[in-house]
Structures are given as C-alpha cells and as structure tokens.
C-alpha cells in the first residue's frame, strides 16, 4: 500500500559501516505454547521453518521467525503479506490459548553492513559479540532503548527497535559508524 511509510523513509549513512533503515517489514507477535503441534504447524505454514529454539532465529528467504521469550515468537514476512499471515496464524492456532498481534507498524528495522559492522553495535549494546552464535537473536538495549538484532549476513546485522524511537536509533548508528571511530583499526 503506497500510503504506508516507514518511520525514516529508508534513510542511510555511509561511515566505516553502512547503516540504513530497511523499510517496512511484516512482523507478527505470536504468543502461545511453543511446543504444541498446532504452533509448529502454524509457524511452518507462515514461514516455512521450524519453531526456533530459545534465542534462535530461523530464516527462510524473505520470511523468518525469532524466539522472543519462552512463550513468544516474532514472525517476519513481507509487509504486504502481514495481514494474510495474521489470519492464517489465527486460524491455525484456533482452539489453543494464544495471542497473535500484527506489530508490523510498531517497529523500525535497520541494517548495519560492512566488515566492521559489529563494532558499531559494540558501542551501543552490552553484548559479548565474540560469543554471539550464528543464528542467534539478541534482545538487549541500544544505548537507552530496547532493541533486538541478529547476524543477517556475512557482514550484516539487522536491528529492530520500536518505531517511535527510529530517529534516535538512526542517530546512534550514524554517530557510532563515523569513519575514524573504528574500535579496532587495522
């Protein structure tokens, strides 16, 4: 829908890493019994993947599902597919105690790209990047706001924050990626 715009309109900055607002993404909060057969089926249908293990994210093409807490998943689909996905999840989980909520418009998504992408986030998040496993989603804070990120490519992180603080988060990323401020200059 052309009326829908992301918080920052896809702004990007090139420092020692490239930081960019990634645009709208379909996101759906799913709460329920993560071990139930219905949940497995619902997730498989929505994303084509299994229910992720604790702190893991399962990615399949433009769809993904992340473990958020022991009773919560975040299903990610293309923005335009969110409403259908919500309906499908609702249907698949009917009869189970669950909650499905479209949060596509409540989030802002960012990518941090480059060989030193991790160094941008190391300035903002109290996270030990050396122990961050492949396929791990880490919920933490970026400076003063809540954030979650995962390694979405060989030299890329995807970071999600609340939409209202998108400008703040982009400010953090821009300042932290400025050239000359590499933490471990070659």
């Amino acid at each position: 829908m052309s009326k829908a715009v992301s918080a920052l309109g896809g702004v990007s900055h090139q420092g020692f890493a490239e930081v960019a607002e990634a645009g709208l993404r379909g996101m759906i909060t799913v709460r329920g019994d993560l071990s139930s057969a219905a949940m497995k089926k619902a997730v498989k249908a929505a994303t084509g993947t299994a229910v992720p293990a604790p702190r893991r994210i399962e990615i399949a093409g433009d769809r993904a599902v992340a473990w958020m807490s022991p009773d919560e998943l975040l299903v990610m689909v293309p923005y335009a597919a969110a409403q259908d996905a919500v309906a499908a999840l609702e249907k698949a989980l009917a009869g189970e105690h669950h909650l499905v909520a479209d949060v596509s418009d409540a989030r802002a998504v960012f990518t941090v790209r480059g060989a030193k992408a991790a160094e941008v986030l190391m300035k903002l998040c109290p996270v030990d990047f050396a122990t961050l496993a492949e396929g791990e989603i880490r919920r933490t804070r970026a400076a003063q706001v809540a954030a979650a990120f995962w390694k979405s490519g060989a030299e890329e992180f995807t970071l999600v924050s609340f939409r209202s603080v998108a400008g703040y988060v982009m400010g953090l990323l821009e300042v932290s990626s400025r050239k000359g401020s590499e933490l471990f200059p070659a």
């Binding site: 604790p54 022991p70 109290p126 933490t140 804070r141």
Partner: peptide, 11 residues
Amino acid sequence: PCCGVKAEETE
C-alpha cells in the same frame, strides 16, 4: 533463567 542470557544490571 528464562532465556539464558547473562544480562547486566542495565538490562
């Protein structure tokens, strides 16, 4: 104990 993260006080 719910997610296994060794969190610091600010989290």
